[in-house]
Amino acid sequence: MSPSERPALPEALRAEFTELVRHYPERQAALIPALHRCQEELGGWLTPETLEACAEFFGLEPVEVFGVASFYPMFHLRPVGRHVVGVCHNISCALRGAEDILRETCRVTGSKPGGVSADGRFSVVRLECQGACTAAPMLVLDGAFHENLATADVARVLGGAR
């Protein structure tokens, strides 16, 4: 199914969000958790259609939803590769070779930081501290932490992601 044919907010997600809003006195509070679910279920990034459908569900203006989504680094507002690799470049990781991990990640994937590889397989991003500082350096592949990395580990870690 192409993105344009896909219903922007499937019934299952609607039902989930209807349950979610019950946890809060005001509906909008469920917006960020809902955007997470949309990104997980609807192709890895938040399309304008998805944001509009969320706006409609939450009774907000689309521009408000866009304003919220664009504030948070975990939300992607542009297409991403099939897999997203993030490398922490903050202080504890930087002290233990984060830049080498990033360089190796770029070499293995063929993508620059902030870009997508030509084959569409990987997006590579720089990350701020992920709370894995005592297991530095680290990378995050599709949300899973890989810690205590040596440069030589990167190809193996990324090799599993087709």
Binding site: E26, I32, V68, F71, Y72, P73, M74, E128
Partner: peptide, 23 residues
């Protein structure tokens, strides 16, 4: 409640705004 990756949401009033579904 799941945040979405902004350090400032650890500041207590930033956290509250974020929990309300805002920036």
């Amino acid at each position: 409640h799941k945040g979405a990756g902004a350090y400032i949401c650890g500041e207590e009033t930033g956290l509250m705004e974020s929990l309300e579904g805002k920036r």
